[in-house]
């Protein structure tokens, strides 16, 4: 399960909306043990594309250092799908870098953004619940 404090969730969704018409991407810092995200790290999409994303490696390094300095880790990545549902594409699965991560999809296909989260282990996709923390 992925736990998202409301401000983290909202920052992530807002960043995805601002990124239109391109896909937006970013990283989530938090506690790998509990699956609770504490920080949203919006990152530049180097691919600058409506269909692809590449997290800027320098911003990834900065986010990783910031998370580790706070006693956390990068626990996942989010990106938007601008015209498709919130489900990992074959490309997302092929390139999933860490089986311990949460893979969050924000679909902007419909009027209301849809946020879903997955684990991707050895090419197998498993959806997991997303719990919003209101605090």
């Amino acid at each position: 399960m992925l736990s998202l404090p409301r401000p983290v969730h909202d920052q992530m969704v807002a960043y995805c909306l601002v990124g239109l018409p391109d896909e937006a991407c970013g990283l989530l810092g938090g506690n790998p043990g509990t699956g609770e995200a504490v920080t949203c790290y919006p990152t530049r999409n180097l691919a600058a594309s409506a269909k692809l994303y590449t997290v800027d490696p320098k911003e990834h390094l900065r986010a990783d250092r910031d998370a580790e300095a706070g006693g956390n880790s990068i626990i996942g990545v989010f990106h938007s799908h601008t015209h498709t549902e919130a489900y990992p594409s074959p490309t997302d699965v092929d390139q999933a870098p860490d089986p311990g991560w949460h893979y969050v999809l924000v679909s902007l296909r419909d009027t209301q953004p849809v946020v879903r989260s997955y684990r991707i282990v050895d090419g197998l996709i498993t959806e997991e619940p997303v719990r919003l923390l209101h605090r």
């Binding site: 896909e23 991407c25 990283l27 180097l46 691919a47 594309s49 409506a50 269909k51 692809l52 994303y53 590449t54 997290v55 490696p57 990834h60 390094l61 990783d64 990545v77 990106h79 799908h81 601008t82 015209h83 498709t84 990992p88 594409s89 074959p90 490309t91 997302d92 092929d94 390139q95 999933a96 870098p97 860490d98």
Partner: peptide
Amino acid sequence: LPAVAGGAVGDRVPHF
């Protein structure tokens, strides 16, 4: 660090 990339289409993404 791992390179983090993907996308909505099934195309293979070239490295950045």
